[in-house]
């Protein structure tokens, strides 16, 4: 009887973790890399031609640089990023106990600056924040994404999924309408991807610079003529968290190059 109950419980656990209708099963998840042409792939693959690597190098210098009134560098606490930061970005956004909610890698860097370096926060989308973020995330290149596993994150993942499926804006479209139901089709000639977050911050040829996921999400929201959330808004963090959990198992590519 006990045994049967255990089977029933296991079956329930499997069913409750099953994909919701329309969600892309693990084996069918594809990085944006697979949607782009050979020239852009080659640019990403070769570190000497990948423009994102310039930001990674700047981030490495910032990692070593003392900052704030505590006169400490990231390296003074974290040591060699190649080992201490390996896999970290693949788990972000992560739950922060003091905030009681998930924080992004950018927010973690600024929490560290405020708390440990006693330095001013770096503005969102500033060169230095992107560079540090790219340097840290680069240490996870080829590490499979596992973000969202922490049970404390569950309500925030659910909130992010709701945003993903919520139609919004004057055009009344949800993220899922394009990135789940219509990937591989062409919007004004350009292929629609699955929106798997494998390479942020990434170098976008259209931007001619490195940019954050939040920049990308905000431009999609503007595209459907919705009011974009502000940088760092809890709604954007929840959406990022859901998207990362949705990319589970795909290897990190930071800094990716995209058209």
């Amino acid at each position: 009887m006990k045994f049967r109950r255990a089977i029933a419980a296991a079956a329930f656990a499997v069913a409750s973790s099953a994909l919701l209708a329309g969600e892309i099963p693990p084996g069918a998840r594809r990085s944006g890399y697979s949607f782009m042409g050979p020239e852009t792939r080659a640019m990403q693959d070769d570190d000497t031609s990948n423009p994102g690597m310039l930001f990674v190098l700047d981030g490495q210098a910032l990692w070593m640089k003392k900052s704030g009134s505590a006169d400490k560098a990231c390296a003074d606490c974290h040591g060699d990023a190649r080992s201490s930061m390996k896999g970290v970005a693949a788990r972000y956004p992560a739950f922060d106990r003091t905030q009681g909610r998930p924080v992004t890698l950018d927010q973690r860097i600024n929490l560290c600056r405020a708390g440990h370096q006693q330095a001013t926060p770096l503005p969102y989308e500033s060169h230095d924040l992107l560079a540090l973020s790219a340097f840290v995330a680069h240490q996870s290149r080829e590490v499979p994404i596992t973000a969202g596993d922490d049970p404390q994150l569950k309500p925030f993942v659910e909130q992010g999924r709701d945003f993903f499926n919520q139609r919004e804006g004057q055009l009344n479209l949800s993220c899922a309408n394009c990135h789940e139901d219509n990937f591989d089709k062409r919007l004004a000639g350009a292929p629609i991807t699955q929106g798997q977050l494998t390479g942020y911050p990434l170098y976008r040829l259209e931007w001619q610079t490195l940019g954050s996921l939040e920049r990308r999400l905000r431009s999609c929201m503007t595209g459907v003529r919705a009011q974009a959330y502000d940088y760092g808004a809890p709604e954007l963090v929840a959406l990022e968290l859901y998207l990362m959990s949705r990319a589970r198992g795909l290897p990190m590519e930071t800094p990716a190059v995209r058209p």
Partner: peptide, 9 residues
Amino acid sequence: DLVRVGRNF
């Protein structure tokens, strides 16, 4: 009956 429509729209 639309959600979060941008200010300009």
